[in-house]
Structure formats: C-alpha cells, structure tokens
Amino acid sequence: MSSSMPARPVLLAAPVLALAGLLAACSGEISVGGPDGISQERLETEVAGNVSGADKDQVEVDCGGELEAEPDATQDCVITYTADGSRTGVRLTVTDVQGDEVEFDQLLFIAAEDVADAVERFYTEQGIVVDTATCAGELLGEQGETTTCEVTSSSDGDATIEVTTTTVDGLTVNFDLDVAS
C-alpha cells in the first residue's frame, strides 16, 4: 500500500449519473397484453417514463432485451445521462404475474467498469498516478453494499479499495472509498 493513498474513508459522490431526476418508484407494473414478456422497446419506454426531474428529457435507456413474464425473471437496463455520458444501471425483477399484468421491483446498480472509472478519476484528482483500476463486481444501490477494486500505480504503489454504498439519491449512488490494503 502506498502512503499516498488515503487510509481513511473518503466520501465520493459517484459521478455516474449527475441527473437531478429520480427513479419514480422502486417497483412498477405494466400490462403486457398477453402471456409473453415485456418487449425491450416497451421496457425501455417504461423505465424512461419512471424518471422524473428537470433533466428527464436528457436520459436514454437501453435494456439488454425483453423481460420475461415469470416470477424472478430479471433484465438489466442502463440509464445514460446524455449531457455528460454518465450511467446508472437498473435491474428489474418480476415479483408477480397476474394475467397480463407484470409487477416488478427496480434496483439501481453501478457496473464494475463504471465503479473502476470513478475510483480512478478520484485518485487521479488527488494527484496519484493510477495505471489501472479494476473492480471485482458491480456496486448495488443499497446502503451498505460493497465491492472491491484493485488500483495499481507504478509510482505510488498498489492498493485494494473497498467501495461501500452510503446513500442513493434519485439515480445517483453515493459511496465511500476505503483503502483495505
């Protein structure tokens, strides 16, 4: 561990969606008009429609495919703020299907590569030369959730960074960075 790396937690407001909007609900419901899943296009429209706030028109939603109409089915979507390219993921999980009505929960997350980018930017802004930053996994948008990142620096040494979600405000996931080793 480099002595240049901060040894105590440092609050870092994740720059992964500076959108002043909110994801209007932690759960949702959509009528699919039959036993099939929710199409990718319809899902993207639904997620975009759940974003509110002054900048909601500057949001693009890209889902990985359709959401099957069966309990526990999941689909990830990426919400991109077009003003700066920042991204937040939302994982939709079907909780109930009644006829053509599909109910689902929404959970925000930050993809591992976006967490790594934020960690690298933070330490670079502190004057630390970062050669690489890689994270073990995504960071869920729930208080107390964690992931670890490995930061390598040819001039400042290597460190393992623990990233912990502190708060979620709309589409912004805030987190602390703590040098673990």
Rank of each mutant, 00 (worst) to 15 (best):
S86F: 07
S86C: 11
R87Y: 12
T88C: 02
T88D: 03
T88N: 08
G89T: 07
G89E: 03
V90F: 02
R91P: 02
R91F: 05
R91C: 11
L92G: 08
L92N: 12
L92P: 02
L92S: 10
L92W: 04
T93A: 09
T93P: 12
V94N: 05
V94A: 00
T95K: 12
T95Q: 12
T95N: 07
V97E: 06
G99C: 10
D100C: 10
E101T: 11
E103H: 15
F104Y: 15
F104A: 06
F104P: 03
D105P: 12
D105C: 04
D105I: 09
Q106H: 14
L107G: 04
L107P: 09
L108Y: 01
L108F: 03
F109G: 04
F109M: 06
F109I: 01
I110M: 06
A111S: 09
A111R: 05
A111M: 09
A112E: 06
A112R: 10
A112C: 03
E113L: 10
E113V: 08
D114G: 03
D114V: 00
V115S: 08
A116I: 00
A116E: 05
D117M: 11
D117H: 09
A118E: 00
V119D: 05
V119K: 06
V119E: 00
E120N: 13
E120R: 10
E120P: 05
E120M: 14
E120F: 00
R121S: 13
R121I: 08
R121M: 14
F122E: 05
F122I: 12
Y123G: 02
Y123I: 03
T124A: 14
T124N: 14
E125S: 15
E125Y: 14
E125V: 10
Q126D: 11
Q126V: 07
G127F: 12
G127Q: 11
I128A: 06
V129T: 15
V130K: 01
V130N: 04
D131T: 15
T132G: 08
T132N: 12
T134Y: 01
T134M: 10
T134C: 10
T134G: 10
C135Y: 01
A136T: 08
A136S: 09
A136C: 00
G137D: 13
G137L: 01
E138P: 02
L139P: 02
L139T: 02
L139C: 07
L140G: 02
L140S: 03
L140R: 09
G141C: 13
G141L: 05
G141P: 02
G144I: 10
E145H: 15
E145I: 11
T146Y: 11
T148I: 08
T148P: 08
V151Y: 01
V151T: 06
T152P: 07
S153F: 00
S153M: 09
S154M: 06
S154P: 02
S155H: 07
S155P: 01
S155I: 11
D156G: 07
D156W: 05
G157Y: 04
G157Q: 05
G157W: 05
I161G: 01
I161W: 07
I161D: 00
